[in-house]
Simulated scan of single mutants.
Amino acid sequence: MQFSGLAKPPIGVVVDSALGDGIDDVLALALLYALEGKSETRVISTSTTKSSLRSAMFAEALTKFLMGPPPPRPTSGVFAGFQRPVPAIGMADNGKLAQDTPVLQAVLDKKNDQGEPLYPRAIAKLNDTADPAALIRNALTAQNDENCLVLLAGPATNLVAMMALPGSMELIRAKVKVLMLAWGGYPEGSADPKVTADLAAARQLLATWPTPIVAAGAEVGSAIPFPGESLGTDFAWAPSHPVVDAYTAYHAQPFDAPAPALAAALYSIRPDCGFTLSAPGAITLLDDGRLRFAAAAGGKHSYLVADPARKAEIQRTYVELVSAKPVARPMRRRTQEKKDEVLPAPVKPSEPPN
């Protein structure tokens, strides 16, 4: 969808993950919304591969907090506009990864003094979520050519379902610059639960995804983890913060969280941030769930390499962005708003939630 005479918007990001199973993807989403507040990017779609209504609730509650309050209504002069609405949350309904987790409990079960949920959300039933394949497809449809990227930090289930929709492969080629993949270890590592959760989808994704793929492996996440000591200082502006609650519930403190998805998110928007790329090649999936990289001239796959000399710099950037106070991003004027408009995704038929 193109509109002549309008400035190209910041690059859009599709985020697909098993939200609630870990903390790395939570940190990555917080970083992306901080960069949105700086007009460096836009989160255009968020979906979970956990077949759990509580995962979708968590995604919405986190998104509402990270987007910040709506901008104040001016008392005089030209009306500045409303903050853009909280985007729909996509949720898989295949029955996989449906379990509740301490991360979900820490955020969703926290109450204020009146006994109400401390982190508001509107999702209460299955029909309040969107079909993830249609949601992602529609988000891509509304973008300028080569002006969006995809961050995958969970099983490939939702992306492969989107790829199967009519016309989606051509749409991906036209709209997506790169798929950032927070999976595995490189050039070869141990099996990753995010991969083994849906081996068939992972194999299909690696074999048929039509744009370049950049992977962030476990070795990058371990080399430059998120510094847990920042929780007690840099987030102090908020009496309660869902990222802090999720982080402390995920692992006993003190704890520096390995963060490959965080590295992938930062590199995707700021490629000069301190990571480099491997030589091009191909990532293949072994039968036991391990991923293996082989260099090859003209290959469409590569992986991130951490520069130890820039560890402190990267960690400062992590903390600065993840702990940033949310800045509301108003909707554009009407003509620009049309350019970013995302078609409504079909919702699922009513059925009992997990």
Rank of each mutant, 00 (worst) to 15 (best):
L262P: 02
A259H: 07
R270S: 06
S302D: 06
R292T: 12
A295D: 03
D256K: 02
A306C: 11
R310C: 07
G289D: 02
F293T: 00
A249W: 05
Q253C: 08
L277A: 08
L285M: 07
F293D: 00
P271I: 07
P308W: 13
G274E: 01
I269A: 03
S278M: 05
E313I: 13
R310Y: 06
G299I: 08
I283P: 02
A249V: 10
D288Y: 00
A294G: 04
A306L: 07
I314D: 01
L262A: 08
A279H: 07
A306F: 05
A265T: 06
L286T: 07
Q315D: 09
A252S: 15
L266F: 07
S278H: 06
F255T: 03
A282C: 08
Y267K: 02
V305G: 04
A257V: 04
T284R: 02
A257W: 07
R270E: 14
A249D: 10
A264C: 04
T317H: 07
P308D: 12
K311F: 09
P260G: 12
A279Q: 15
P308C: 14
S302Y: 01
L291F: 00
G274V: 10
A265P: 01
G298E: 12
C273W: 01
D272K: 10
T284C: 01
A309H: 09
D287K: 13
K300T: 11
D287N: 12
A249Y: 11
E313M: 13
A265R: 02
A282E: 10
A259N: 10
L285S: 04
G289E: 02
R290S: 11
T317S: 09
L266N: 02
S278I: 05
L262I: 06
D287T: 11
A296Q: 15
A265M: 05
R310K: 15
T317I: 12
L266Y: 01
A282Y: 03
F255A: 12
D288C: 10
V305R: 14
P280M: 03
A249I: 13
P258E: 10
G298N: 13
Q315R: 12
F255H: 15
A309G: 10
R310D: 06
K311T: 14
Q253T: 10
H301A: 07
A264I: 07
S302I: 00
A257Q: 14
Q253D: 11
H301N: 11
E313H: 14
G274F: 08
A265S: 14
L286S: 09
S268L: 04
A252F: 10
R316C: 09
K300N: 11
L266R: 01
R270D: 09
A265G: 06
F293P: 00
P308S: 14
Y303H: 15
A249N: 06
P254M: 11
Q315V: 09
H301P: 00
L286F: 00
P280F: 04
A261H: 06
A294M: 09
P271R: 10
P258L: 09
K311Y: 11
P280I: 06
K300L: 14
D256I: 06
T284S: 12
P280Y: 01
A279G: 09
S268V: 04
Y303M: 08
A295N: 04
Q315E: 13
F255M: 08
A296S: 15
H301C: 05
R290A: 05
H251C: 09
A261R: 01
S268Y: 04
R316S: 14
A279L: 10
I314L: 13
F255K: 04
D288E: 03
R292E: 11
R310A: 15
L277K: 11
